[in-house]
Design a protein around this nucleic acid. Structure first.
Lengths: 218, 218
DNA sequence: AGGCTTGAAAAAGTATACAGATTGTGGGAG
DNA sequence: CTCCCACAATCTGTATACTTTTTCAAGCCT
């Protein structure tokens, strides 16, 4: 165990970041410091600090009426895709070089969870499993700066999932991508993983473009 | 003019970010909220919020005794170089496509300032001119996400400058890089600018490796 | 009836106070 | 003279209170 010497602020920050990760915060939820403070039995201040930090890091957006999940515009989503096309493949290459057997076992479990969720048609579980898979390989990136640069686009990944993951073809793309990446990770195929991750990001962008056009003409 | 409707917090944030940019904060300075608050005639809170935000964004580090400029470890500097090798060239390509004549004129002025500073041996002026040049072309990047991703590594750039810029050969590399980039920007040579920026980042890394090894065995 | 005004409610911003933690220093014991 | 300890100074973390801004809607005017 790490030192339990942590401020309320940091605990709340980590708690809510985790909630955002695993989809426990709904898009309509409005997070208000006084409300959360009352629930936790602390004052506004540490809650406020945590929420403002999450907002500055892009995981939430501050409105005049509480914090909510960010509503990335269509343009912003496309802009972030360009950044991710540069970063994610290299990060995956690092992961391929560094993942240990235990971490690969964990990824296999997440991939199996994702497949099961697809079979059950359980979107919520599919989101969680996809996020766990992504979080898993990112954790193995030894370059800490690369790691945090890649992590930063969590909201983007979630937005894209929200738009695309209901589609059966997309679900297949995700399952195939996870399985092929797993093979490359097991083989420590650095260049293969880099290339496959680039393909995966491009596929995600194509799916997003196709499905966002179909559903909503922003 | 934009609306003057801004919180103290945001004004202080921008003010101190600007000070960090143009080198007005020395490495030994310790920024303490109560002190700054007293100078500005406000309470700790907005100052504290601004400083904590700057710290979370990597522009400062929080110590147990005030905020200071970050002391990036040798390893961190090298890790960030890898990220910048991916991002900076693409950002420069975007800039080449988008810079308008007025912006190019501004860049020419900054490059001239840099050359003058080199001739005078005025490091402080050279830092400022280099930062202004960098800030100038980054501002022209139309992809806002790319822009903020690249801006984020300000402290890295400053750290590298601090270690390398006293060297005559490095000064020549900087001057050459600025002039050649300017030519490419003027010609709207997107691919040329991308490639030249990659060369520039690699040169910076090589200079850093050589000079940090020479001066300090971290 | 429709548009505008106004005021109460909600939440963010700021101020102040105090508690907890850390650092540095001076004095005493050996 | 040196080492250790305790205490004061300093700064961060949290609590609470007050102020300002924004929103929303009821009611007024035309």
């Amino acid at each position: 165990m790490a030192q339990p010497r942590k401020s309320h602020r940091d605990r709340i920050y980590e708690d809510y970041l985790e909630r955002i990760r695993n989809g426990a915060i709904a898009r309509r939820d409005r997070l208000v410091d006084t409300t959360i403070a009352a629930e936790l039995g602390v004052s506004r201040m540490p809650v406020r600090d945590a929420l403002m930090r999450l907002a500055h890091e892009g995981y939430l957006t501050a409105t005049t009426r509480g914090f909510t999940l960010p509503n990335l515009s269509h343009e912003t989503v496309l802009e972030i895709f360009e950044v991710r096309r540069l970063l994610d493949p290299r990060a995956a290459a690092w992961a391929a070089q560094s993942l240990d057997p235990g971490q690969i076992t964990a990824l296999e479990r997440h991939a199996a969870d994702a497949q099961a969720a697809i079979d059950d048609g359980d979107y919520q579980a599919l989101y969680r499993a996809s996020e766990a898979f992504r979080n898993g390989w990112i954790s193995a990136v030894p370059n800490r700066e690369m790691q945090s640069a890649v992590r930063r686009y969590l909201s983007h990944v979630q937005t894209v999932r929200m738009v695309t993951m209901h589609d059966r073809r997309v679900q297949q793309i995700v399952a195939d991508g996870q399985n092929e990446l797993l093979d490359l990770f097991r083989a420590r195929d650095v260049l293969g993983a880099e290339k496959r991750m680039l393909v995966f990001v491009i596929q995600a962008e194509q799916s997003y473009r196709a499905l966002s056009r179909a559903t909503d003409g922003r």
